[in-house]
Each structure stands twice: as structure tokens, then as C-alpha cells.
Deep mutational scan, measured.
Amino acid sequence: MKVIFLQDVKGKGKKGEIKNVPDGYARNFLFKKGLAVEATPANLKELE
């Protein structure tokens, strides 16, 4: 799953980066803790 990092995550990505991460990791950790959002067209547009 492609995500946009909202904060630096040690060993995974830095704020503003767009990266592919495993689905479970994204849903169960990154999204729940507010560290990233899914890289949807709407979210990508907001990032610009």
C-alpha cells in the first residue's frame, strides 16, 4: 500500500515521503498512530 508519511518514522520514511509499505503495517500501526495516510489522489493533491 502506498502511504504518505506525516511524521518521520525511524527506518521506514521521513515526513512528506511517499512509499510502499505492507498493508497490515499501514493499517495497524501507521494509520492508527497518525504517522501516515493512504496515498489517494485527494491526499496527494493536498501534499502539493
Score class of each variant (00 low, 15 high):
Asn20Glu: 13
Arg27Gln: 09
Lys12Thr: 11
Phe5Tyr: 07
Lys2Ser: 11
Leu30Tyr: 03
Lys32Thr: 10
Ala42Gly: 12
Lys45Pro: 06
Glu48Thr: 14
Lys14Tyr: 12
Ala26Trp: 09
Gly34Pro: 01
Leu6His: 02
Asp23Thr: 14
Ile4Val: 08
Pro22Ile: 07
Thr40Ala: 05
Val21Tyr: 05
Pro22Lys: 09
Lys33Val: 08
Asn28Met: 12
Met1Pro: 03
Asn28Trp: 13
Lys15Val: 08
Asp8Tyr: 09
Glu38Trp: 07
Ala36Leu: 02
Val21Ile: 07
Gln7Gly: 05
Gln7Tyr: 13
Phe5Gln: 00
Gly16Asn: 07
Phe31Tyr: 05
Lys33Thr: 09
Ala39Arg: 02
Gly24Glu: 14
Lys10His: 11
Lys15Gly: 04
Ile4Asn: 01
Leu44Glu: 06
Val21Asn: 00
Asp8Gly: 05
Tyr25Trp: 11
Pro41Thr: 11
Lys19Glu: 02
Glu48Ser: 13
Pro41Leu: 12
Ala36Val: 05
Ile18His: 03
Ile4Leu: 11
Asn43Ala: 12
Ile4Lys: 05
Asp23Phe: 14
Ile4Met: 09
Val21Ser: 02
Leu35Arg: 02
Glu46Asn: 12
Lys19Gly: 08
Val3Pro: 00
Lys12Met: 15
Glu38Ala: 11
Leu47Met: 12
Val37Asn: 03
Lys14Asp: 05
Val21His: 01
Asn43Trp: 08
Leu47Tyr: 15
Ala42Lys: 12
Gly24Ser: 15
Phe5Thr: 01
Leu44Gln: 07
Glu17Leu: 03
Glu17Gly: 02
Lys19Tyr: 07
Gln7Phe: 14
Lys45Ala: 14
Gly34Glu: 06
Leu44Ala: 05
Ala39Tyr: 13
Leu47Gln: 09
Lys15Tyr: 06
Phe5Ile: 01
Ala39Lys: 02
Lys14Gln: 10
Asn20Ser: 13
Ile18Val: 13
Gly34Ser: 08
Lys15Trp: 04
Asn28Asp: 13
Leu47Gly: 06
Ala39Asn: 03
Tyr25Leu: 07
Leu47Ser: 07
Val21Asp: 01
Glu38Asp: 04
Lys32Glu: 08
Lys15Thr: 09
Val9Gly: 01
Lys14Asn: 09
Pro22Val: 07
Ala42Pro: 07
Arg27Asp: 03
Tyr25Ala: 05
Glu48Gln: 14
Gly16Gln: 02
Glu38Lys: 08
Gly16Asp: 04
Lys19His: 11
Lys10Asp: 13
Asn43His: 10
Leu35Lys: 03
Ile18Leu: 08
Gly24Phe: 14
Gly24Ile: 12
Ala39His: 06
Lys33His: 15
Glu38Val: 08
Gly11Pro: 04
Val37His: 04
Pro22Asn: 10
Ile18Arg: 03
Lys10Ser: 11
Leu47Thr: 07
Leu35Met: 07
Lys2Met: 15
Glu38Ile: 08
Leu47Val: 10
Lys2Tyr: 15
Lys45Ile: 11
Glu48Pro: 09
Phe5Ser: 00
Asn20Arg: 14
Glu17Ala: 06
Lys15Pro: 04
Lys12Arg: 15
Lys2Ala: 11
Asp23Asn: 13
Phe31Val: 06
Phe31Glu: 02
Val9Lys: 02
Glu17Ser: 06
Ala36Arg: 00
Gly24Lys: 11
Phe5Gly: 00
Thr40Ile: 06
Ala36Asp: 00
Gln7Thr: 12
Leu35His: 03
Glu17Phe: 03
Pro22Glu: 11
Ile18Lys: 03
Gly24Met: 13
Leu44Arg: 07
Ala26Phe: 12
Lys12Ser: 13
Lys2Gln: 12
Gly16His: 08
Asn28Ser: 10
Ala42Val: 10
Ala39Asp: 03
Lys10Gly: 08
Pro22Ser: 11
Ile18Pro: 01
Ala36Gln: 00
Asn28Gly: 10
Leu44Ile: 14
Val37Arg: 08
Glu17Thr: 06
Lys19Met: 11
Lys14Val: 10
Ile4Asp: 01
Gly11Phe: 08
